[in-house]
C-alpha cells in the first residue's frame, strides 16, 4: 500500500454566505504519493492555493477530509507534527519581512532536526541570493529566492511550493530545477509544485494532477497520462462522435480529428476494423492536454448552465 504525502477526500472550502458564496474547492480528491515530484496544475482560480493553504493548516476545510503525512493539519496538536516536517513557499512570497540572512537564521532555529547549513549555502550560491538586502528593497524574484532558500534548507520530508517560479529569470529557474532534483527529492522526499509552468512540470514531475473549478480533472503518473492521450485523424463514413474514451471531436469535409484520453490504440484498431482509415496519429504535449481538458470542461459547463 503506497503511503501518501497528501491525501484529500471530497474536500470542500466555501467562502461567503448565501447567494454570494464561492466554492473555492468543491469535492476535491487529491492523492500525492510519497517520494514523488507532484505537479498540481490548474488555471488561476482553480483552487490550488486554497488546497495548499488547507494542507498547511492556514485555512479550515468546510467539509471533507485532508491528511498530510498521515495527520490532520487543521488543528493542534497534529498540526504541529505536520509543520515540523513540511517546507512551504507561499504564493504571494510575503513570508516574513526580513532580509534573507535574517530569515535563514531565524528559520534555522525552528528545525533543529533536519536543517542543513550546507544546503542553505548551496541554495544561496546557486540562486545568487543577495543575503543582506533589506526586505523592502528586494525584487519579487529575490523574495521568491529568499523564501525558496529558507524552505529548501529545512530539508524536510515534504516540500510544498506554491508558484515557485514567479519572478525567476531562466538561469535561476534552471538552477531551481537542478536543486529540486538533486537535493529535495532524494531519500523518499516528496515535492508538491503548484504552477502554470507546464514545460518545467513536464520535465521534472513524475505525477500530476490537473484541477479546475475546485475539482480534479485528471490525476496520475505523468508517463501514463502522456501515453493515454493521443490525437487521431481519420477519414471514413459514420465515425462515432462520442464515446467513453473520446475527449473531443473536430471534423471537416475531409477528415475527423479525435482527441483520445484513454486507450488510443484500442480505439484506432476498432475504427480501422469498421472501415475507417487512420491518416495521422500524434502524441500530445502536456500543454495541449491541459488546454483540451480545460476547454472541454468549460463547454460542458456552458451546456449545463
Amino acid at each position: 500500500m503506497t503511503a501518501f504525502a497528501i491525501q484529500t477526500h471530497s474536500l470542500v472550502k466555501t467562502y461567503g454566505l448565501g447567494s454570494k458564496q464561492i466554492r473555492a474547492v468543491d469535492g476535491l480528491s487529491l492523492n500525492v504519493p510519497e517520494g514523488s515530484i507532484y505537479g498540481l496544475l490548474g488555471r488561476n482560480s482553480a483552487g490550488k492555493t486554497t488546497t495548499i493553504r488547507m494542507a498547511m493548516g492556514l485555512a479550515r476545510p468546510s467539509s471533507g477530509e485532508i491528511k498530510v503525512l498521515g495527520f490532520n493539519p487543521t488543528d493542534d496538536p497534529e498540526r504541529v507534527i505536520v509543520l515540523r516536517q513540511v517546507g512551504y513557499v507561499p504564493e504571494d512570497k510575503m513570508l516574513a519581512s526580513l532580509s534573507p540572512r535574517k530569515l535563514l537564521e531565524l528559520n534555522r532555529s525552528f528545525y533543529p532536526a533536519t536543517w542543513s547549513d550546507d544546503l542553505a549555502r548551496k541554495v544561496v550560491k546557486r540562486l545568487e541570493l543577495p543575503l543582506d538586502t533589506p526586505y523592502l528593497k528586494l525584487s519579487l524574484g529575490n523574495k521568491t529566492k529568499s523564501a525558496l532558500a529558507a524552505a529548501i534548507a529545512q530539508h524536510s520530508r515534504l516540500l510544498i511550493l506554491d508558484e515557485p517560479t514567479i519572478g525567476l529569470d531562466p538561469v535561476a529557474l534552471d538552477e531551481l530545477l537542478r536543486l529540486l532534483v538533486e537535493d529535495c527529492s532524494a531519500d523518499g522526499r516528496t515535492i508538491l509544485l503548484s504552477t502554470h509552468q507546464l514545460a518545467e512540470i513536464e520535465q521534472i514531475a513524475d505525477h500530476i494532477g490537473i484541477m479546475d473549478h475546485g475539482r480534479i480533472l485528471i490525476e496520475g503518473p505523468l508517463d501514463d497520462i502522456l501515453s493515454n492521450f493521443r490525437r487521431l485523424t481519420f477519414t471514413g463514413a459514420s465515425l462515432p462522435l462520442t464515446g467513453p474514451s473520446i475527449l473531443s471531436v473536430k471534423s471537416d469535409a475531409r477528415a475527423t480529428q479525435f482527441i483520445l484520453q484513454r486507450d488510443p490504440e484500442g480505439f484506432a484498431q476498432e475504427l480501422t476494423r469498421n472501415g475507417a482509415t487512420l491518416i495521422d496519429s500524434s502524441p500530445m504535449s502536456l500543454n495541449e492536454i491541459f488546454l483540451e481538458l480545460c476547454r472541454t470542461t468549460e463547454s460542458k459547463e456552458e451546456v449545463s448552465a
Binding site: L58, V80, L83, A96, Y111
Partner: peptide
C-alpha cells in the same frame, strides 16, 4: 508577514 510566518512554523 511575520504573522503568517509563525503560523506556518511548528508552534501551536
Amino acid at each position: 508577514w511575520m504573522g503568517r510566518f509563525f503560523r506556518t512554523r511548528p508552534l501551536t
